[in-house]
Design a protein around this nucleic acid. Structure first.
Lengths: 213, 213
DNA sequence: GAGTTATAATTAGGAGTCCTATGTTTTTAT
DNA sequence: ATAAAAACATAGGACTCCTAATTATAACTC
């Protein structure tokens, strides 16, 4: 009869795994940002806005990074001081503001978004199939989080009106993106596509069924 | 001829996925910690030490959480002020100190480690197979990070001298843990086992080959 | 064994995140 | 028209997190 300590349930261990990896991501961010004279939060804002040429409102940025709007105001002021970002009035709403990167900010943000990372290096050790499965799992998790309201709307292929799941059954790249008019596979799925256009809720549900079915 | 923007390579998108999930983890940590009057860093220390009854040195804690020893001294002082932690001299080294949780700290740390989380809820939406595959991918990533020196030594099954990969070939739980003397499957792999004892490097390599091969 | 170098921890000083609460302005609802 | 709601900013405060310097001990080197 064994009396081993009770192992944590699998869900808790999976969360633990994400937490371990998250710590490395944060460390990577510190080193990449530090070289540019920034801190992690500033770097995250830059990387986010580099993918959003039209800019975002402070409130939206705060939601994406899971901080309050007041905290984000601090960070935006810091970035504005460094001439990496500009806040301009929103013509559509006189209360609001749009935060956009300056040319320098866009440069730096792009570099940060594609900076080398120890996590990226570790991911390279997985096989192509493992990478595809992992991306698929991430898409499922992120979609669930989005549906639960835990994160703002994400620009995922699987919620996009251009996405046609299993349009090419049996082939290596079974899905299709009507925007680029090309066949794509699981490993090509995007998490933040600049061309994303949200499909109708009903269409999204049907797409999801077809995608996972 | 299409001129769509170049999609980020799959490794960058996988990292992006981890970053999204990491943000939710951080938000979860804020809410769980906030109810206890703590902040995320303090909560992480508590959760880490709750699994280490023997305590850890400040330097080790700092390495686990990827901050400097100086920063960790701040946090340990804060926790000591709240009577959740005590620092005692290390008998083996008069320069050093051992940080251990008080009874109250252990209580709280245990509760934080198993607190509800939006990520856990999202993970519940994956099938049992997907969960096992995801855990397996995490183990591979974490082991690679460990080997690269990006994170301190982790107490993984796959580096433990009690672990016998594929000791029961063909069965649902093919592996075996000699410590608890029980068959275990991929979904039972632990990331921070209290009973972990590191195997010899040569044995670790052989175990890994047998495990993945 | 004496002297040098390395290590563990902390403190000091400063920048900056991040919170809650409050205030200001504009929009929307009644 | 008035009230309620929303977007942003500021104020005040706790605390993280960094680098650099300090103290004490340990571990080498000759």
């Amino acid at each position: 009869m064994d009396h081993a300590p009770q192992p944590a349930p699998v869900l808790a261990r999976l969360r633990e795994g994400f937490e371990r990896i998250a710590l490395v991501l944060r460390a990577d961010l510190w080193s990449a940002a530090g070289e540019a004279g920034l801190n992690p939060t500033q770097a995250q804002v830059l990387a986010l806005l580099a993918a959003r040429p039209a800019g975002l409102r402070p409130k939206e940025i705060a939601a994406h990074l899971a901080v309050t709007a007041a905290s984000m105001a601090d960070t935006l002021s810091a970035l504005e001081r460094k001439a990496l970002l500009r806040r301009t009035p929103d013509p559509a709403d006189a209360r609001a503001v749009i935060a956009r990167l300056t040319d320098g900010g866009r440069d730096l943000g792009g570099r940060l978004a594609s900076a080398a990372s120890q996590v990226t290096a570790a991911l390279a050790g997985l096989s192509a199939n493992e990478q595809a499965d992992l991306l698929l799992a991430q898409v499922k998790i992120i979609r669930t989080l989005q549906q639960a309201g835990a994160i703002p709307l994400q620009r995922l292929c699987v919620t996009c009106r251009h996405f046609r799941p299993h349009a090419h059954p049996g082939e290596a790249n079974p899905h299709h993106c009507a925007f680029v008019n090309a066949a794509i596979g699981d490993r090509d799925l995007r998490l933040d596509c600049g061309e994303h256009e949200a499909a109708d809720p009903a269409v999204q549900a049907a797409t999801w069924t077809a995608f996972t079915g």
